[in-house]
Design a binder for these strands. Sequence first.
DNA 1: GGATTGACGTGTC
DNA 2: AGACACGCCAATC
Length: 108
Amino acid sequence: MEESFYDQVFELVRLIPEGRVTSYGAIARSLGSGGSARMVGYAMSNAGLSHPPVPAHRVVNSTGLLTGKFHFSPPEQMEELLQAEGVIVVDNKIKNFKVVFWDPMLEL
DNA sequence: GGATTGACGTGTC
DNA sequence: AGACACGCCAATC
């Protein structure tokens, strides 16, 4: 029950407001791990197993590209959810990424 | 306990 | 501007 890195990532991702997105690196940094951005993404693999559903669709890489969209049940669901929240996604990439970007450290 | 992995990031060609 | 390569860190086998 030790809050491993994964759990910390889950909680932080859950704090992401709707219509906003963040990057794996930003999450990792806010957790103090800095370069463990890959861990954040890896944790997302268990996100679907986490009890309170983790809005993994609000987490993208630094380029705003929906890298993990292929990991969703229907890969297209990621875009659906994002656009449903007002996030513009074009060609698996967030349009106004800098606008919808949500920095954990900045808000927290 | 060593080796492998992995939904990334940044720099370079 | 697009593609390639290396580096990081933590969990899992």
